[in-house]
Every structure is written in structure tokens, then in C-alpha cells.
Amino acid sequence: MTRTLEATTTAPAAPSVGTRLRTLLFGRSAAIIALLVIVWIIASVSVDNFNTPNTLYFLILDVFPVLLIALPMTFVIITGEIDLSVASMVGLSSVTIGALFQAGVPVPAAVAAALVVGIVGGAVNGFLVTALGLPSLAVTIGSLALYRGIAVGILGTTAVTGFPDVFTDLVKERLFGRGTAIPTVLIVFIVLAIIAIVILHFTGTGRSTYAIGLNKEASAFSGINAGRLKFWFFVATGTVSALAGVFWTLRYDSARGDNAMGLELVVVAAVLVGGVSIFGGRGSLVGVIAGVLVIGALRSALRLADVSSDVINVATGLLLVVSVIVPSIITAIQRLVQRRRAAAAAS
């Protein structure tokens, strides 16, 4: 009876095009894309050779591992967890390929084995975090040391090189022939990125991912199994990191235990710069991809400008700190303004 009362009076109206446009234009992802464009323009104008296909080609190859790992890392961080062991898994995957290749195993089989190692490594993290309820920060600092330790332990300081050209050329191939910008491997990323974007932004699983990060208890009351989802996200970071390890090994034709040392920090920095909240529940993949590219472009431009790689690290760190502080400052200002207004209204 009462429920059939005219709906129009009380039900909220559909958001106007203006509102949608505003969120689109002033949201976090938009800000980071704008930053990317600005960095790109400044670099093109002020740095010689920045805006050439070759630079872009190397830029993409350089950030490729970060691009890959940032995808599953985004899911992990949105659920309120973190995986610091990814770079170690790159190293372990690389060593797996190297050691097996050295023992005479054909490259495709070695690659498959490396991916299995990635799945297992991710599953171990996932098990410790979800089944035992341990804090992922501590667990993955442990597996960071463990996986890297196993990698370094197996190969020591030696490197395995001399992989067949078929494979090393494959990862360096350009999609549209000599002199063009797009490496063929980018297709791998594009496929994975589309899958990730669809899952995170257009499926129930994606909705659950955000829900877990925002309020674990309420999501349990909505029938969401946080443990299972997180477990698979850790498996995904392990697997994709192993894939990045395959790329790393073949690109540099070098399987070493210390490959990609410290890369976990670049990945986390890129995801956070891309607007994902370290507390979970917020962020988008478009922002993250833009975040990775901002860092990549910045590094590449500075390198071309003959700035040493160390100052580049300073820039990366500053970018990370600034990108997290600015929203904090904005909220603080908003709160201040609100308080002023309230005080003015009261008096």
C-alpha cells in the first residue's frame, strides 16, 4: 500500500550529466592522467629526443615489469593488504629459468616451471595471510627475504646467459617493424590489463574487492568471502611477478638472483601515486596504469636529460610522498573551511 506511493517525490534523481562529468574530470584518476600529460609535454619540450619512437619503445620495455605487477598489486592493496615479495619473485622466477636452462631444460618448459613457482609462492603468501590471519606486511617482508634468499642461494653471484635468440628477440620485437615504438610484448600487458579492468570495475568480484577494503565486517554480512578472494589475489601477484621475471631474464639475456632488486618499492609507489589508498577500498586501474607511466616517463626523461639515476630515485620518492600528502592536505583544508562555516552559522 504505502510502498506504491508515488516514487518520484522521494527517490533520488539520476545523477545529472554534469555530476558525472565533474567526477570524471576532477577525480583522482583524472588528476593522475593530467599529471602524466603534463610530464609528457614538459619532457617533450625540454628534453631532446624524448618524443621519439625509440624513447617510447625503451620507456615501455623499462616499465613493463612494473606495469604487469601493478595490475594484481592494485587488487591486493584495494583489499587492504600488501605484497612486498613481488620483486623477489621476479628474481626467483629468473633463477628458476636460469638453473633449468643450465641443466638442459628447453626454455618453454623452464618458463612454465617459473610460472608454477610464481603460483606456489603467491599461494604461500595467500595461505599465511588468509588461513592463518597473519598481517600481510610482516608475511611478505618475510617472503621477500625468503624468495630472494632462495634465488641468490641457488645461483650465488653467477649469471646464466646465452638464451636462444628466438626467445630473447621475441621480447624485444617491435610490433610494427623497425623504428616503431610499440614492443610486441605490450600485447601481453594489454590483454592482462583489460582482464583486470573488467574484473575490478565491471564484475561482482570487483565490487567485493572494494567492499572488503572498505569494511571487512559488513562485506562478510553481505556474503562476501574475503579470505578466498584475497588468497587468489596473492596467487595472481605471485604468478604475474613470475611472468615479469620471465620477461626480465629474456630481455637482458641474464638470469640472476639479484634481478629486479628493490622493484617492489617502485611497484608500490606507482600504485599509490596512481591514487590507490594504502588503507584499501579506493583507487582505479586506469589511475594505476597512469601512475606507472608517470614514473616511467619521469625516469626516462631525466635519464635522457643526463640526470643520474640516483636523482631519478629522489624524484620517484618525492612523487610518492607528495602524491599521498596532497590529498591529506586537501581534506585538512576542507575540514577547516567546514568548521569556519559552522562557527559562522552558529554565531
Partner: peptide, 16 residues
């Protein structure tokens, strides 16, 4: 959500 909100006469500025 709009259907649900209408049925229960939810008063909200915007469902977003």
C-alpha cells in the same frame, strides 16, 4: 537501486 529506493521511499540526495 533506484527501484529499491523508490519502493522504500529512501530519501537521499543522490544514489551516488
Amino acid at each position: 537501486a533506484h527501484d529499491g529506493a523508490a519502493k522504500l521511499r529512501v530519501k537521499a540526495g543522490s544514489l551516488e
